[in-house]
Every structure is written in structure tokens, then in C-alpha cells.
């Protein structure tokens, strides 16, 4: 057993981190929020293999593993790259054009408890909507959905529509596939939240070293230092849980996939949420402004926390493994 990243995996992650840092620096968040468009980003993500990387090479993919996907999504989360990256990754191999970035795919997971009202992310850009139900995976044509645009979305980078009804669409895979996609979606969402937990811990630490009050950096004060130490612990805990879930998906014989994934979603969700809040608090009044990008991370976390099962729902699922 090797519970550590291989040299190739470390290199993959470093390479992708550099790409994202260059292509999607943090200033982009504010620019996109102010209405700027980035028409080529999606195609470039596709070219980097974000959607296709687990597909076999014969099918145009890179033949990589769930752990590799988790590392890539960790970096997407760290930079807060927008768009329905998880759904499009899930759709690769199921919906034509998803793997290559030609078709943007969004989706809804109706197998989780709190899936109504139907709020669909990035519907405007989507060529297909993937719907997970207990009886299978359904493909819905966006043009058949009667939905109204929500004027002001919570996360300025995640536009949403509200649909009062969902057409059935076409059933493209069975219940087992729906289950598997739900687990994968939860894992990749956890990886995004791991990246968010790291980014907000780093931002908080950087600010605490620079901002001076009472003639010293605020990071000197124990109240701040200890809060930030906790962000580090939670980030590492989330890393352990996310890598374990991905590693279990790669080799299901080593454990219980559903439990490992539920634990990752729970731990990463809590970690991202708490780290975002700490980051706001450490920034003081600046943390409450639009200009300082901390709020984007917090808002995206709310979205990710609500998809593929919330912290509470996963806690209940884990408790159910005790029987009774």
C-alpha cells in the first residue's frame, strides 16, 4: 500500500497548478464578476484533459485514475475556475462532445435529499443537462426546460436558472451508472473544496503576515495564529479524506467506496466552509468587501456543499452503516 502521491502524480499536479495560475489568476474572478467573458477557457481546460483524463487512450482520453482526477480538481478549486467542470467530466464518454469541450454539460442530482427547487447552474452555456435519478441517468435537452434566469446569483461566477418542472428527457444509463456518477461527482466536488480550503488558508496566512496592528503583524496574536493553525489541520484532514476516497474508487477492493466518498464529502465540505469563514474573519473589514476575493470562495463552497449530498446528508449515510 502506498498512501502517497507518486512522482508522476506530483508532477501532474504541479504542471496543472502552473497552468491554472497562469491562465486563471485570481484577478480574473473580479473581472468575470464584472461581466468580462472568457470564451476560450473551456476549450483550453478540455485540451488539458480536465474532462477526458480518465477515458481510455483509445477513446481520446489520458487513461488516468481517480486520484489523478482528484489532483486536477483540487487545483481547479484552488483557483476557483468557474463552469460546470464536474458535470462535464461526468458526461465524458456518455455525451458526445463533453470530453473535448465542445458540449458544455450541466446537471442535477435528484438522488440526494434536498434537490428541490430545481436550480440549475450554467444552463445558458449548456448543450446538455445530465440528471441523476434513482432509476438511472437521464439526458435532458436544455431547450426543453422552461426556466427563468435568477437575476442575481449567490456566486457571481455561477449563474443559475430556476425550473419549476423538469422534462424527463432520455434515459441513457441505468441505476447503477447513476449511483457511480453520484459517487464520482461527490468525490470531484470534494476535491474542489479541498482546493478551496487550501487557497483560503493560504490567503489568511499571507494577510496575517502582512497586516499590522498594535505595531505588529496580526499573525503574531495567538487568537489569529491558532485559528489559522486550525485551517491547516482541516485542510490536511480534507486532503487525506479526498485522496482516500479517490484511491478507493480506483481500487474498490480496499474498502467501502460509498463510505469513503461520503466521508470525503463531509470532511472537505466542513473544511472548506470553516476555512472560508476564518479567512473572512482574519481579513477584518476587508474580508467583508466585494473587492477582496474571499467571498467568491465562500459562495462557491455553499454551492458545492449543496450538490451531491450535503454534510448533514453524508453524516446520516455514514451513521446508517452502523445499522440499527
Amino acid at each position: 500500500m502506498a498512501f502517497k502521491l507518486s512522482d508522476e502524480q506530483l508532477e501532474l499536479q504541479r504542471g496543472f497548478r502552473d497552468f491554472v495560475a497562469g491562465r486563471f489568476p485570481i484577478e480574473k474572478l473580479g473581472q468575470l464578476a464584472d461581466g468580462a467573458k472568457d470564451a476560450t477557457l473551456w476549450g483550453e481546460l478540455a485540451e488539458m484533459g480536465v474532462f477526458s483524463l480518465r477515458l481510455a487512450e483509445a477513446r481520446g482520453g489520458l487513461g488516468l485514475f481517480h486520484v489523478d482526477a482528484a489532483l486536477i480538481f483540487e487545483e481547479l478549486g484552488r483557483a476557483l475556475v468557474p463552469g460546470p467542470v464536474v458535470w462535464t467530466h461526468l458526461a465524458a464518454g456518455l455525451i458526445d462532445g463533453a470530453a473535448t469541450g465542445e458540449t458544455v454539460v450541466t446537471g442535477l442530482d435528484l438522488t440526494t435529499n434536498r434537490h428541490t427547487p430545481f436550480v440549475i447552474e450554467h444552463l445558458e452555456d449548456a448543450g446538455a443537462v445530465l440528471v441523476l435519478k434513482n432509476d438511472g441517468v437521464w439526458r435532458v435537452d436544455p431547450s426543453t426546460i422552461e426556466a427563468t434566469t435568477v437575476d442575481v446569483p449567490l456566486d457571481p461566477l455561477t449563474p443559475v436558472h430556476h425550473a419549476s418542472r423538469l422534462p424527463d428527457g432520455e434515459r441513457i444509463a441505468d441505476a447503477q451508472a447513476a449511483d457511480a456518477l453520484g459517487l464520482l461527482g461527490a468525490t470531484l466536488s470534494s476535491a474542489l473544496m479541498l482546493g478551496i480550503a487550501e487557497a483560503t488558508s493560504d490567503m489568511g496566512v499571507a494577510y496575517a503576515k502582512e497586516r499590522q496592528q498594535f505595531d505588529k503583524p496580526i499573525g503574531t496574536f495567538q487568537a489569529i495564529k491558532h485559528m489559522l493553525a486550525d485551517t491547516f489541520v482541516r485542510q490536511e484532514l480534507a486532503r487525506a479524506a479526498v485522496y482516500a476516497a479517490a484511491g478507493t474508487l480506483d481500487h474498490p477492493e480496499v474498502g467501502d467506496v460509498a463510505t469513503a466518498v461520503a466521508e470525503a464529502k463531509l470532511v472537505a465540505g466542513e473544511s472548506a466552509m470553516k476555512n472560508c469563514r476564518t479567512c473572512v474573519q482574519v481579513h477584518g473589514g476587508m474580508g467583508y468587501t466585494w473587492e477582496v476575493p474571499v467571498h467568491y470562495f465562500l459562495k462557491r463552497t455553499w454551492i458545492l456543499e449543496s450538490t451531491f449530498g450535503s454534510v448533514d446528508e453524508h453524516a446520516d449515510r455514514i451513521a446508517a452503516t452502523f445499522g440499527g
Binding site: L237, T259, A260, E263, L266, V267, H314, D316, I318, F322
Partner: peptide, 11 residues
């Protein structure tokens, strides 16, 4: 809460 604790123990 027991579900939470279990996730944290495995974590």
C-alpha cells in the same frame, strides 16, 4: 453526530 465522528476518525 456519530456519522460526523466516524468520518473524522477515518480521516
Amino acid at each position: 453526530e456519530i456519522g460526523h465522528l466516524q468520518a473524522d476518525i477515518d480521516g
